[in-house]
Each structure stands twice: as structure tokens, then as C-alpha cells.
Simulated scan of single mutants.
Amino acid sequence: MVSHKKVDHVDKTSIFRLPSPKTTKSYVKLQAATPAMTAMTACLRAKTAFTGNGSSHFLSYAVGSMDNAFLFAYNGNGVIYSLVFNAIKDTSVSKVHDGAWHHWCFSWNNRGGKWTVYKDGMPAAAGTGFQADKTIPANGVWIVGQDQDTVGGGFDATQAYVGDITSINVWNTDNVNVAAVANCGDNFGGNVISWYDVSKEIHEVSTYREDLCKLK
């Protein structure tokens, strides 16, 4: 286990493993300077077989005025959902916890409230009218594996993520070639969070190495 240690660079074969049983002690804080966002795309690779009560949060973003500025998660039935500016968008995208690696993205634009969930590079659900004209506030805190009820904390063990996760990238636009990123193009890197460059503060999360691109 590694705790309270900053890792400045993680290569493409480095993967975080958040342990079972669920706990508030395991998470990764990403040190990213975040602008106010009227559009965004958040992508990651995850592998989990966890089932049970409660939700599981891949990624959360909180600011002083709003703990649910952005959330990317799945519920106890393995169905993806997200929150933007404190409002939830349920989807029909499921089978998150099938024990296999998947590449997930959520994109949103406040012009018309357009949103899309991508699975393995392909659109899996989409719509409009979600949080149109809203702006995700700047200068917040990004946490991998937990839902923040206060900025940088306030975790609830029933909402923790259990499983493997890597390649988290965030852009402040919904104009991203998700298919290319999903096809081992993670070196593109987000302009808000670039997985290989962002400083990571790791709390009771183990790491291992595996080149996922060689599995394709």
C-alpha cells in the first residue's frame, strides 16, 4: 500500500487498484488547475466486478460552493450516471461491473445541455436539455474513487469505488475524438487533467503495471 505520497508522473502501464471492502481511506487526489467549464469531457479506463448496495464513484469534482459540481459513477445495478452542477443524469448504460476493462467517457455542453456517455469509444447514450446554460465552477478538487460531500473529503464508504482504474483525462470541451482516445490514444491527454502529467496524491491505494494496449 502507498499512503500520502505524491506521484508526479505515472506511465501508461500504471494502474491504481482501490481495495475491497469499501473504505473512505482509499482515494487519489489529482492536483489540477481547473478553469470554469461550460463544456467538458471526462474519460477513464476501469475494471471492476463489484456489486452490492450503494453507488461507486470513479471521479468527483467539488468546489467550495458546490460539492457535486461533477460526478462520474455507477449505481448498485451497474448503471452509469453523472452529476453536473448538482443535478443528476441517469442513463441506461449498464454492465459496468462485468469484470472486464472498459473505456468510459461522459461529455457535456451547456449549449442546449447536450450530453453523451461513451463506452469503449462508441456513444452508448445521449440527450439534450441537461443543465443548459450552467457553468461548472473553477478551482475545485478532483478525487478518484470517492464522492466528496465537502471539498476534498466528507467521504461515505458506501459510495467508494472498488476496482482498477487508470487513464483519467478531462477536457474543457465536448469536441474530443473519443474513439481515438479509447483506442489507446491516451497520450493525447486532457487539457484540464492529463493522466501522465497530473500530480497525484495517493491514499491507501495500490499500484501495478500492465500495458492495456497490448491486450487489444
Rank of each mutant, 00 (worst) to 15 (best):
M1D: 14
M1H: 12
S3T: 15
D8A: 15
D8Y: 15
H9S: 15
H9T: 14
V10F: 07
V10N: 04
D11N: 14
S14E: 13
R17I: 09
L18W: 00
K22I: 03
T24S: 09
K25A: 13
K25V: 06
S26P: 08
K29T: 12
Q31C: 01
A32T: 07
A32E: 06
T34F: 05
T34Q: 07
A39M: 04
A39Y: 02
A42G: 04
C43R: 01
C43F: 05
K47D: 02
F50A: 12
F50R: 12
T51Q: 14
G54N: 07
S55G: 10
S55D: 14
S56E: 09
S56D: 07
G64E: 15
S65C: 08
S65A: 13
N68I: 10
N68G: 12
F72A: 08
F72C: 06
A73P: 01
A73S: 13
G76Q: 13
L83V: 13
L83E: 11
V84P: 01
A87D: 13
I88M: 11
K89Q: 15
S94C: 04
K95I: 01
K95S: 11
G99H: 06
G99R: 06
A100V: 13
A100D: 14
H102G: 04
C105W: 00
N109T: 11
N110R: 02
K114I: 12
D120M: 05
G121Q: 10
T128C: 02
G129D: 04
K134Y: 11
T135S: 11
I136F: 03
I143F: 06
G145V: 08
Q146P: 06
D147H: 13
D149C: 07
T150V: 13
V151P: 02
V151K: 07
G152F: 09
G153D: 08
D156V: 14
D156N: 15
T158M: 06
V162T: 10
I165V: 11
T166R: 02
S167Q: 06
S167M: 05
I168Y: 03
I168H: 01
D174W: 04
N175D: 15
N175L: 15
A179M: 11
A179R: 08
A179E: 09
V181D: 04
G185R: 11
G189Y: 04
V192Y: 10
I193K: 00
D197S: 15
K200W: 01
E201R: 10
E201G: 09
E201I: 13
I202E: 00
I202S: 02
H203W: 10
S206T: 14
E210V: 08
E210Y: 09
K214F: 09
K214R: 14
K214Q: 13
L215G: 12
K216D: 02
K216R: 07
